[in-house]
């Protein structure tokens, strides 16, 4: 059993190890190792296209995570008190949002928005009072829009699961003790669902940061880091991509450690307060 686990971990980590190893390759060809060097890191960080793509990816991922965890939590809280037809309808929409493949979301968003923009832009131009009218285009907004739609559905599911598993007697006790609904929410419900919200936030951030397929369709003239890497691979494999991959891994790792730390600190506080 333990041997099996070790083998699976090897399977999971060997490819990542190879990428990290080859990112320090001094040679120009990705697949043959010619001594240790960090020059590809310098190259990657000096590359304005990489930095642009990184900025876009981080901005989009952060905005997506904030919007999705905020709106998703709000919806999850409301949905616990909604019954009947509206509830069934909402469950259906969430189910579809999660089930539809990313590639279909990308395509659908692309053709819907391009069609809408082609219709709206002339209207906007004719209605604009003087000067150059703004043009609606695919870019940041469509990226954030599509990513938020999908991750919001995930947050709703995660937070709702947590609410369902919550100790209801605490809420009843709080109400019996004449706490206002807001106070009950802040002091009883929120601390209990907070780990779920945070998990939803981090999941949303990662999804958006790593997403290639939706972004490939809706990014317009913008380029995210995965889009940059994909087109680089097509042009040929260089150690620079390994360096970028290693850095992305580093960022993700520190985020993950931070999340664990946060979750534990919260748990300890809760225990201390109790």
């Amino acid at each position: 059993m333990r041997l099996y686990a070790i083998a699976v971990y090897l399977f999971l980590y060997a490819p990542i190890g190879i990428i990290i190893l080859f990112s320090f390759n001094a040679g120009r060809h990705a697949s043959d190792f010619r001594g240790f060097s960090v020059k590809w890191y310098g190259k990657a960080l000096d590359n304005p296209f990489v930095m642009d793509a990184l900025t876009t990816s981080l901005t989009v991922a952060f905005t997506t995570a904030v919007l999705a965890s905020l709106m998703g939590t709000m919806a999850a809280l409301a949905l616990q008190r909604v019954q009947g037809r509206l509830r069934a309808l909402y469950d259906g929409v969430i189910y579809i949002a999660i089930m539809i493949p990313g590639i279909v979301i990308g395509i659908a968003t692309l053709i819907a928005l391009v069609t809408a923009f082609n219709f709206l832009n002339p209207l906007l131009a004719s209605a604009w009072p003087g000067g150059k009218p703004p043009r609606l285009n695919m870019g940041y907004a469509s990226l954030i829009g599509a990513h938020t739609m999908f991750t919001m559905a995930l947050v709703i599911v995660i937070v709702r699961t947590r609410i369902a598993g919550m100790d209801r007697t605490l809420i009843e006790a709080s109400t019996d003790l004449y706490a206002t609904p807001w106070r009950t929410f802040r002091q009883v419900t929120l601390p209990q669902i907070f780990p779920a919200i945070l998990a939803g936030f981090l999941l949303s951030f990662t999804f958006s940061f790593d997403d290639f397929i939706i972004a490939f369709f809706v990014a317009g003239s913008e380029s995210t880091l995965p889009i940059y890497v994909f087109s680089s691979i097509r042009r040929g494999v260089t150690p620079e991509i390994n360096a970028i991959g290693t850095m992305v891994l580093g960022v993700s790792l520190s985020l993950l450690v931070a999340a664990q730390f946060l979750l534990r600190m919260k748990a300890r506080q809760a225990r201390a307060a109790g």
């Binding site: 490819p15 990428i19 290639f212 993700s252």
Partner: peptide, 16 residues
Amino acid sequence: VPFWTSILIRTYAWIF
């Protein structure tokens, strides 16, 4: 952790 790294990069490792 592997899931946190880009699936693009991880798949690309298998090209090697």
